[in-house]
Every structure is written in C-alpha cells, then in structure tokens.
Amino acid sequence: METQLELIRGTLDVLILKSLAWGPLHGYGISNLIRQQTDEALLVEEGTLYPALWRLERKNLLEAEWGLSENNRKAKYYTLTPEGRRHLRAESKLWEAYAAAVGKMLSATHRPEES
C-alpha cells in the first residue's frame, strides 16, 4: 500500500495558507514544506499547486512579490494577506471539528444505546 495519501478536495487551500503562516515562501518552498510537515504523506503536485496559488492570489488571500531565492534566483514569493490569515483561522477550526467528528465516528466500538 502506498504511504502517500491523495489530497481530499478543498484541503489544498488550507495547507497552502498554513504553510505561509511562518512567512513568505515561493511555490517550490510551499510544496517542500507541505511534504516535510506531513512526513511525506501528502505530496502536492505542481499541476494543482500553481493554479491554487493564482486563485488565492486573485481572491486577495495571498499577495505576491518578486524576490531573490537562497541561491540567488529571481523567485515569486507569496505572503498571507490579513484576509488570508483570517481565512486560515476560520478554516482550521472547521477542519479540526470535522476531523474530530469523523474520528469519533470511525473509532466507535459499539452501537449507541437506544434511549
């Protein structure tokens, strides 16, 4: 069985926003960060990463600026806008609640008593 998980729809946006929570990053950096943070369990493909970035930028959740990378290349760095930060907070809360609920259901051991 593969150890890499398929991304569930709609989660990519939150992951991107979260990865930018520590500071500006370029697209490549974002994909690396997600991979490392999830212990290589989640792999973000370029074909989905960039369109998502551009979409978030147009929605004003991200801001982009050209800068120099560690090895002196011109790279496009993304930063969270205040709106993006707010969005991240709201989405995280939703996800935690969702995950907890699904977890509870799946870890249930017996039928609930009829009351």
């Binding site: 697209g27 960039y50 790279a75 496009k76």
Partner: peptide, 8 residues
C-alpha cells in the same frame, strides 16, 4: 515562476 520551480 514555473521556470524557477523547475530549476530549483
């Protein structure tokens, strides 16, 4: 942007 990604 895409070219940078590839190079990296």
């Amino acid at each position: 942007e895409l070219a940078f990604h590839l190079e990296q």
